[in-house]
Design a protein around this nucleic acid. Structure first.
Lengths: 182, 182
DNA sequence: ACCTGAACACCGTTCAAGT
DNA sequence: ACCTGAACACCGTTCAAGT
């Protein structure tokens, strides 16, 4: 602690995520991040290419937070665990979550999550040529719900109603997979 | 035409929407809108409270574009027509469409669309206490798909694949409603 | 009533300079 | 190698002034 202020990409992302959680995504400016790290804004450019790169880093952080499903569980529970994890991440970081929709999932974390869903769907008995499409639509349903909730589209409904909505959505997912695997 | 440049809220929204369609939402600045109207940025504030009000206006414009379903058709076709209309609007205005998720639907247009879905679901035979929840989840599915596509989440898949995905999603919607009305 | 000019605090980013 | 100071073009917005 006796040293002069140190900085790193990890510290920058943590500061940016904290600001987004506290004051919204628009409050995440280079100056605000720098201020929180007690550094001039220009110091950030040593560790981050530009602001877009910083935002990409925040998305990475979110994806890393979605805990991978515990192997060994039946596929239904693995899918449900992933869905709950995504929703929890969205409510924890509502500001940043919107970025997930606009940035294609190309990081290792995101690809791993997709593979997990593929495995679960194959285990459920889906035709191999149906797996990819089903994964796209199912993740659209879950991401769409989580993003809507995070963005405040259901803000006038109490949490209990939103919980019941989500449970209903998961039930639908189960039925759809059963029907596809018939 | 011989007059000096005239301005109005409608003209401002049209200019903003055109800029968003051509260069993305970030290009919609007060200065860019003013430049397109051949006016100083400060002139806009006579007709628009601030930039947030301008963005709200753009969302209104999008909602007004989703054509209401033709009455007289069976409920399945009315719902499908609305879904296609939403998707078409999203692909026409991808930049602005993201805003739809973050701004709660409180305008007359949005409430009317919701009522149309309610009517269709009642006609399908849903329990009255299931109608509101089902509407929320169905619109989440459609909006989620349209937003994902507009934001580029499916950009690496050709249009034919995305069309088939959407058709599959609509088929699911039909099955879910049938099951709920059983 | 409607538009302009000048001004302010704030952005993202570059470049030369310090240590 | 890493941070700073000064600078630039660009934001949103306010206020007094023009017509």
């Amino acid at each position: 602690m006796g040293r002069t202020a140190q900085i790193s990409r990890a510290a920058i992302l943590s500061a940016g995520l904290a600001i987004a959680d506290e004051h919204g995504l628009t409050a995440v400016t280079m100056q605000a991040v720098a201020r929180r790290l007690r550094v001039t804004p220009m110091a950030l450019y040593r560790h981050v290419a530009n602001k877009d790169d910083l935002l990409d880093g925040l998305v990475e952080r979110l994806l890393a937070e979605v805990s991978p499903p515990a192997a060994g569980l039946p596929w239904q529970e693995r899918l449900a665990a992933m869905a709950h994890g995504i929703r929890a991440t969205a409510t924890r970081h509502p500001g940043v979550f919107m970025l997930l929709l606009s940035r294609p999932a190309v990081t290792g974390e995101a690809l791993g999550a997709r593979e997990s869903v593929y495995a679960a769907l194959r285990e459920a008995g889906l035709d191999p040529d149906q797996v990819a499409r089903t994964e796209r639509l199912l993740s659209t349903m879950i991401l769409g719900f989580a993003a809507s909730e995070a963005a405040g589209r259901f803000a006038r409904h109490p949490a209990a109603v939103r919980d019941a909505d989500f449970a209903c959505l998961l039930e639908w997912v189960g039925h759809l997979i059963d029907a596809a695997a018939r």
